[in-house]
């Protein structure tokens, strides 16, 4: 019983860690990699500053 509760808690933690990592990576993708023109123009100076490959 105790074991299974601990196990369930562990799994929900794993899920939230994975979700946070995924959300973080997608934010980085939007800020640094996405090609849409409007995005690129807004992000242009920042991409150079953080040294994401640009142009």
């Amino acid at each position: 019983m105790f074991f299974s509760i601990a196990r369930a808690r562990l799994d929900s933690q794993t899920l939230s860690i994975a979700a946070a990592a995924l959300l973080g990576l997608s934010l980085i993708f939007v800020a640094g990699f996405a090609n849409a023109t409007a995005l690129h123009d807004a992000a242009h100076d920042q991409r150079h500053a953080i040294a994401f490959p640009c142009h």
């Binding site: 946070a20 973080g24 990576l25 980085i28 993708f29 807004a42 920042q46």
Partner: peptide, 20 residues
């Protein structure tokens, strides 16, 4: 644009760092 996208980038860095 620079401020907003820097915030987006660092929010992303923070979430990945926090996940680690």
């Amino acid at each position: 644009g620079t401020i907003a996208m820097t915030l987006v980038a660092y929010a992303g860095f923070g979430l990945v760092l926090g996940a680690g």
